[in-house]
């Protein structure tokens, strides 16, 4: 059996998702043994090219990012967007300062942007989250090895939260995005009393207006970076 060649790349990001993959150390060693998976974490394209599967972490914030991304796409059979930055443009990488705010604060020659990779290349699959859930990554990885299409969770963070019998943060007046956010994170933030800020993106048929209405009725204010509409439609350029 030919080696399955896997490349893991990062564009502009905090590399937190890579750390999550490394956290899988025990299982990864197992997989490497059984399937002779060649796994290279590198900044440039290495000798394993072409890749069967490329995992790309980070968003596109420069022309260099864009060029590298296109090179990776050209050299890979399957391309997986890894984490919130790659999937949605890293709203949370810059969550304390909206990109527009940064541009206002630092008026200079360079205009800042942070784009999801799907704006530039075709993406076969997305693993959302900031950072990714390591078990979900592994489930997707196994699916790809079996040539299964890794089905995205289509349940909400709320539904996972109630399975942990957590008390509801919205009920406590906190702007929690759990009801409209795609689950799969096992509601880790609300479990530790942190509101969900939607890092996994919208669930299928998310009722954004409904949630905003609920917040309004309860007098809950919401930070602009959390507004789901800001994540916008992804368009390829």
């Amino acid at each position: 059996m030919d080696k399955i060649r896997v490349g893991i790349f990062n564009l502009s990001s905090c590399e937190g998702c890579l750390v999550q993959i490394l956290n899988l150390e025990d299982i990864l060693l197992n997989i490497l043994k059984t399937f002779e998976v060649e796994c290279r974490v590198l900044g440039t394209i290495g000798k394993s090219e072409p890749y069967d599967i490329a995992f790309v972490e980070g968003s596109v914030m420069s022309i260099e990012d864009e060029m590298e991304l296109k090179k990776i796409r050209g050299a890979s059979r399957i391309l997986v967007a890894l984490g919130e930055c790659a999937c949605h443009g890293g709203n949370f990488l810059v969550k304390d300062f909206d990109v527009d705010e940064i541009n206002e604060m630092f008026p200079g020659s360079q205009k800042w942007y942070s784009h999801p990779i799907e704006r530039y290349v075709r993406v076969d699959y997305r693993i959302p989250g900031c950072p990714i859930d390591k078990e979900e990554f592994f489930t997707v990885f196994k699916s790809l090895l079996l040539e299964k299409f890794p089905e995205q969770a289509s349940f909400t963070v709320c539904s996972e939260c109630i399975l942990k019998e957590n008390s509801c943060l919205i009920e406590k007046g906190v702007a929690c995005m759990g009801p409209i956010t795609r689950g799969g994170c096992k509601a880790i933030c609300p479990t530790f009393n942190r509101e969900c800020y939607g890092c996994r993106g919208l669930n299928d048929d998310a009722n954004i207006d409904g949630l905003l209405h609920t917040f309004k009725e309860k007098g809950i204010s919401i930070q602009p970076y959390m507004l789901p509409s800001k994540k916008g439609e992804v368009k390829r350029s």
Partner: peptide, 10 residues
Amino acid sequence: MGNVTKGLFR
């Protein structure tokens, strides 16, 4: 079509 048929075709 879906995953089961993909697996079956293998």
